[in-house]
């Protein structure tokens, strides 16, 4: 059994190595398909990182009216914390807000002098709220903007950033959709080229197949090497793509991090290498074997 399998593998490799031009064409197309798959995987990683870092930076600030009593503020804080959508809520008093503002602008003389000229604290107390997910912010904003709270909450700061996140998510979805379409399109071309490669190999191996049939080779001993040729194309295409992806990730890493601050493409690629390898092998071998199977069923009568 194992000996038979080894011979099928060896024979598949021999077919791949012998028909250099058709194997080369199949390999080239498969490399393109797998490159797009790998690029899409990295794009998915970068866009998820970008969106989640934006989501992390999002919060809702409910500015408290100066007329609000401390009891009203405590009630508001308690009721906000009780909302299931809320992950965290932090009250910042007028004094703390001023302290943070001064600290943030300690090197800006003009602002510090302006504060001195005012002679009073112009900042409002606020309740900074983080939701459990970006989808919960509208519900929290709606709660804070309720007319019953208008005597406590003077202003809610959230909507502008929500729109940006929404647009970014839509843009990322659009790019992912286009890339998927391209993968399907390139995959179809890959199947077509691999199918023709197997067909040509079957044609050029017709004497061999005839001899195999007449000496009593089993069906899978005859068909196996052609399938194995598809596997070899998939495996080689995967290795070539991975070989090129490492320097490409290193080279493009700096450019990508200027678009997505904090995202290290090379690090992402290196830490996801096993998944990328499995994905590439799955797609590469899957397409290679699938197209070989169609060609065998159509052209290889045993």
């Amino acid at each position: 059994m194992l000996t038979g399998f080894k011979r099928i593998v060896r024979s598949g490799w021999e077919k791949f190595a012998r028909d250099k031009s058709s194997s080369g064409a199949a390999l080239f197309t498969m490399v393109i398909v797998l490159s797009v798959v790998a690029a899409l995987y990295c794009f998915q990683g970068a866009s998820s990182f970008f969106v989640s870092s934006l989501q992390e930076s999002v919060d809702i600030s409910a500015y408290i009216a100066d007329t609000a009593s401390s009891e009203d503020i405590e009630k508001l804080e308690a009721s906000v914390k009780a909302l299931p959508e809320v992950k965290q809520a932090e009250f910042i008093s007028k004094e703390e807000a001023l302290e943070r503002f001064v600290n943030d602008h300690k090197n800006d003389e003009v602002i510090l002098q302006s504060l001195e000229v005012l002679g009073q604290n112009p900042l409002s107390a606020s309740l900074n709220i983080k939701a459990r997910g970006s989808e919960h912010y509208p519900a929290i904003a709606e709660f804070l903007e309720d007319p019953s709270l208008s005597s406590v909450v003077s202003f809610v700061d959230y909507r502008d950033r929500a729109r940006i996140i929404e647009r970014l998510e839509k843009l990322a979805d659009g790019i992912r959709g286009a890339a998927l379409f391209f993968i399907v399109f390139a995959g179809l071309i890959g199947v077509l080229v691999a199918f023709n490669t197997t067909r040509l190999t079957i044609y050029s191996s017709r004497d061999e197949v005839e001899v195999m049939r007449l000496v009593g080779a089993g069906n899978w001993y005859i068909r196996g090497p052609f399938l194995m040729q598809g596997v070899v194309v998939g495996v080689f295409a995967t290795l070539i793509v991975l070989l090129f992806m490492f320097p490409a990730a290193m080279f493009l890493g700096v450019r990508v991090s200027s678009f997505v601050p904090g995202f290290d493409l090379f690090q992402f690629f290196a830490s996801n290498i096993v998944w990328i390898l499995l994905l590439q092998l799955g797609v590469g071998i899957g397409l290679g074997v699938f197209s070989a199977l169609i060609a065998i069923r159509k052209y290889l009568k045993v």
Binding site: E14, R18, D207, E208, E210, V211, R213, L214, V215, G216, A217, G218, N219
Partner: peptide, 21 residues
């Protein structure tokens, strides 16, 4: 069972049908 049957027969052809490689 056809392969099993064909293993009982040896074939010789006019054009030899040897694998060139």
């Amino acid at each position: 069972r056809l392969p099993e049957f064909r293993r009982k027969v040896g074939m010789v052809f006019q054009d030899y049908k040897l694998l060139q490689y």
